[in-house]
Write a protein that binds this DNA or RNA. Structure first.
Length: 590
DNA sequence: GCCGTTTTCGGCCCGACTGTTTTCAGTCG
């Protein structure tokens, strides 16, 4: 078996596309490979997992042909068809494709000209060639492009690849500061997030911001003077890009207020959503662009100040940014069947926080007291709070010791409640219990007497095979007091892949046994992932949204979890901690 | 090569910026 991750597979498909461009294949065939690569790159699910389940074609852009090629890839580690595509080309062109500023044509032309046949040495060789001044004299090149090539190659060698995605919260914070800065200029009438940030995608590439203004140049010049900028990347009439010292790229787009809606729509994306929307427009004799909607026959352009106007012109209701992923939202909109997405004010309780009560936990202790957490819950307008410390460690403590710890903990919390009558928030005394590798829960049977219910989760042996992992999860969830499956995939964004499990089976089990799946708002987790949330919602599963806070300040991170839920089409009815206290308590007991 | 409540055949989104050019090719989103 061969382990190819999504990034590697996407790169491979792009290389095929590049080879086909050089070989002058049908351009739609080329686009198909690029689309497939896009789709795989953005997928939250490992393509390999889909392949194991024989579900490759679930991914948009993957049809029977590419699915068959990927089958080859996973089985044999290579694809005959791809090797043929790569044949008779200078192999040095392929690594160059990963360098910013290089596309198929430039990569091929230079590799061919300078006989870069070895993919391992091509980058360094080309750098030396560029430095010796051999590129500038070539037709179509010049001194400036030679310098750009040197800078791009040096940057690449230092580790700057084309894409570097960061978790949503980091991007959000950087963007917020830039927006504040832009708004401090009087020429700025308004400034909004654009792109994946506005759609709330869990990982962000570039930070895009849209500015409504009548003085475009003034705003752009002001933007270029942003104090944290270290480099101007691009400047034009309608926008500019800078690089921050943190390595984050910030793009702004400026537009007149009367056309701002079209711009906002266009730059919010996603690309797939926009393409689908433009296809719909074409069928209606209209052409949609960044500037508005053109009547194809008359050539007349109509401007739109608001996004609502754009969608209305296409006979669609407004589609919330979080849904714009081409996951069926345009069809749903046409049928007037868009979901009424869950909103922050509908959340009635926080159901996963860790306190500083020292119960000799198996994992990290929280940093805030129960009183502080209750007060924070009250400030956030919650009716109830679940304290869910990690279970006491099982090595080094006897069962009796653990039972005694759990009993004392319950008494401690009850004492706090009775001595703080001014706290209105109701408390559930729960625990986050490890599902051990064999599926047993890391808590003695008798200790369950001292909790209302438990969340269960995986904190070890993440790499078990699919069948073992699935059985482990089901066994763990079988305990009558196990009500919530916390951070189900166990992924840490950018650090650890999620576990491999048969999610259909897990979801079926949860639905039948009345268990909830968690949407964990913690920035590195955001787990379940949006696409899995959609799957859960589609199959009628119930979810909770919580923060897994280890400090009271982290409880405001709930907004990120809500964003994930919205991206998964979740409505109030799908989220159990929208229930009032009594009903939530009732659900916990059954 | 993909895709489908107008299609299983015949379509397939739109434009900006850069560097090189006197009208365009390549790259990017």
């Amino acid at each position: 078996m061969n382990k190819f991750n999504n990034e590697e597979i996407a790169r491979l498909l792009r290389r095929v596309s590049a080879a086909y461009i050089i070989k002058n294949f049908n351009r739609f065939r080329i686009i198909a490979y690029d689309k497939a690569a896009d789709s795989i790159e953005k997928s939250n699910i490992e393509v390999r997992d889909l392949w194991e389940q024989n579900r490759l074609s679930d991914l948009p852009g993957i049809g029977s042909t590419i699915a068959a090629h990927l089958d080859d890839l996973f089985k044999n580690g290579k694809v005959k068809h791809f090797e043929q595509a790569f044949a008779n080309l200078p192999q040095g062109m392929f690594p160059l494709l990963d360098v910013p500023g290089f596309g198929p044509k430039k990569a091929y032309l230079l590799s061919d000209k300078f006989r870069l046949n070895d993919s391992d040495t091509a980058i360094n060789k080309l750098l030396a060639i560029a430095k010796s001044g051999k590129i500038a004299p070539l037709e179509g090149f010049g001194a400036k492009s030679e310098q750009d090539i040197i800078a791009a190659l040096e940057g690449f060698i230092k580790g700057q690849t084309k894409k570097k995605r960061m978790p949503l919260p980091y991007a959000y914070n950087a963007a917020r500061l830039v927006i504040e800065y832009l708004k401090s200029n009087r020429a700025t009438e308004n400034a909004y997030l654009l792109g994946s940030l506005r759609r709330g995608v869990s990982t962000i590439g570039d930070i895009d911001i849209g500015v409504a203004t009548k003085k475009e140049q003034e705003v752009i010049n002001f933007f270029l003077k942003y104090p944290k900028s270290v480099k101007k990347i691009e400047q034009g009439e309608s926008g500019a890009s800078i690089l921050l010292i943190t390595g984050q790229q910030i793009d702004i787009r400026v537009q007149r207020p009367e056309s701002f809606g079209a711009m906002l729509q266009y730059f919010t994306g996603s690309k797939a959503h926009n393409i689908r929307l433009r296809e719909l427009a074409v069928k209606k004799g209209l052409s949609l662009s960044e500037y508005g909607i053109k009547n194809i026959k008359t050539g007349k352009l109509k401007k739109y100040a608001s996004e609502e106007g754009i969608y209305a012109a296409l006979n669609l209701p407004f589609i919330p940014p979080e849904l714009r992923e081409d996951w069926g939202e345009i069809n749903a909109a046409e049928a007037q069947k868009l979901p009424e997405l869950i909103a922050r004010e509908q959340i009635k309780g926080e159901v996963h926080v860790h306190s500083d009560y020292d119960l000799k936990p198996s994992h990290d202790l929280g940093a805030s007291s129960v009183e502080e957490l209750l007060q924070t819950a009250q400030k956030l307008n919650y009716e109830y709070l679940v304290i869910s410390d990690h279970n006491p460690k099982i090595s080094g403590l006897s069962e009796n010791q653990i039972i005694s710890i759990m009993k004392k903990r319950k008494e401690h919390f009850e004492h706090i409640l009775s001595s703080n009558k001014n706290i209105r928030v109701k408390l559930f005394i729960m625990l986050e219990v490890d599902i051990l590798p064999d599926g047993n829960l890391a808590l003695p049977a008798q200790a369950f007497d001292y909790v209302d219910a438990v969340l269960v989760s995986i904190h070890s042996s993440f790499t078990q095979d699919r069948e073992t992992m699935t059985q482990r999860i089901l066994t763990g969830l079988s305990h009558p007091k196990a009500k919530i499956f916390a951070h189900p995939s166990g992924r840490l964004i950018g650090k650890r892949e999620g576990v491999n499990a048969d999610w259909d089976k897990v979801f079926d089990f949860c639905r039948q046994k009345n268990k909830a799946l968690e949407i964990n708002s913690y920035p590195d987790r955001l787990d379940l992932a949006d696409i899995m949330v959609k799957k859960a919602v589609d199959s009628g599963n119930k979810l909770v949204i919580d923060t897994d806070s280890h400090h009271k300040e982290q409880m405001t991170l709930i907004d990120y979890g809500i964003t994930v839920a919205r991206r998964g089409w979740a409505e109030k009815k799908d989220i159990l901690n929208t229930l009032p206290y009594n009903e939530f308590a009732e659900w916990l007991k059954n």
